[in-house]
Simulated scan of single mutants.
Amino acid sequence: MKRASMDRFIDTIEWIAAAFVGIVAANIFIAVLLRNIFNYSIPDSFDIGRMMLGILIFWGIAATSYRGGHITVDLVWANVGPRYQRWIDVFATLVLLFVVTVQTWTLFDKVHGTYKDNVLTFDMGMPTWPFFAVAWAGDAAAVLLIAIRTWRLIFSPELMHDDPKIKPVE
């Protein structure tokens, strides 16, 4: 993949995560509005909201993992030179890649089990496995983005800086 197409792929994953934020917010807003004003609840609103929140979390992991926007502790990193900072970044990203890969493997098992057991929502009897599958896709996207981040940290660290005004530490 060329650099531009890779960046479009990364941006697409981030937009998907953002769309799920909007969907979850809209679901909560509409459910509360209908319940408080019209004394009506959407069937399976709670189950759908709960599963959509799970989807949001896994797609959020994908969005934050590539950019390094997750919570970090940089006490050691801030006090070493640029060469060691890069090695710390590579090591931390490899650990993250391992952890998220194992998580993705186990989540696939959950999707398969939910499908096989025919788990349904309470009110409308909708199958829940598609929600788990979409969450798994977000986790799989996280593995891809972390692998891209690892590759870029090792072989092309200059591609990790999105803002041209921000210069890497020399």
Rank of each mutant, 00 (worst) to 15 (best):
F122P: 01
M6N: 02
F91C: 05
T106Y: 14
W129F: 14
Q85N: 09
S5P: 00
H161N: 10
I88C: 07
F155P: 02
K110H: 07
I88H: 07
A133G: 08
L120Q: 12
H70R: 08
Y84P: 00
S65G: 15
R3D: 13
W129N: 03
F108H: 09
M160Q: 14
I13L: 03
R83Y: 04
G54E: 11
D89W: 04
L56I: 02
A142I: 01
P164H: 08
T93K: 11
T104N: 09
F38K: 04
I16D: 01
D7V: 07
M51G: 01
I30E: 04
I61D: 02
T93F: 05
W87E: 01
F155C: 06
T128G: 01
T114E: 09
F122Q: 03
S45V: 10
Y115I: 02
P127Q: 11
R152F: 02
V99M: 13
F38Y: 15
V169C: 01
V21D: 05
D163S: 09
G125T: 03
I37L: 13
V100C: 08
V111H: 07
V73G: 10
R152G: 00
F20W: 14
P164I: 05
A135W: 08
T121Q: 05
V76K: 10
I71L: 15
Q103L: 13
T121Y: 05
H70P: 03
T114L: 12
Q103C: 10
S45C: 04
L33M: 11
W136P: 01
H112K: 10
D89K: 09
D123Q: 06
A92Y: 02
Y66T: 02
T128M: 15
V99I: 14
A31K: 00
F108L: 13
G54Y: 10
Y115N: 11
I30F: 09
I166R: 12
I23K: 05
V80T: 14
I57C: 04
G125R: 09
V76F: 07
P130I: 04
D162G: 06
G54R: 09
P82R: 03
Y66D: 04
A19D: 03
E170A: 14
V102A: 15
T106C: 03
F58M: 15
F58P: 02
F91W: 10
P157V: 02
Y84N: 12
V119R: 11
I30P: 00
E170R: 12
I37M: 08
L120Y: 11
S65C: 11
V100Y: 10
A133W: 03
F29S: 12
V134N: 08
T128F: 01
D117S: 15
V24Y: 08
W151P: 00
A19G: 12
D44L: 03
G54A: 13
P127M: 08
I71K: 09
L144D: 01
S156V: 02
A19H: 02
I166M: 05
W151A: 06
A26Q: 01
I148Q: 10
W105S: 03
I48E: 04
L33H: 03
W87K: 07
N27M: 10
F46N: 05
T106K: 13
P82E: 11
T101I: 08
L94F: 15
I55L: 11
T128E: 13
P130F: 07
K110I: 12
S41R: 12
F38A: 10
L56D: 09
R152W: 00
L97A: 14
L120K: 15
P127Y: 13
I71R: 07
D47E: 15
N79P: 02
S45F: 03
G60L: 08
V134Q: 07
P130H: 05
T12I: 04
A142T: 07
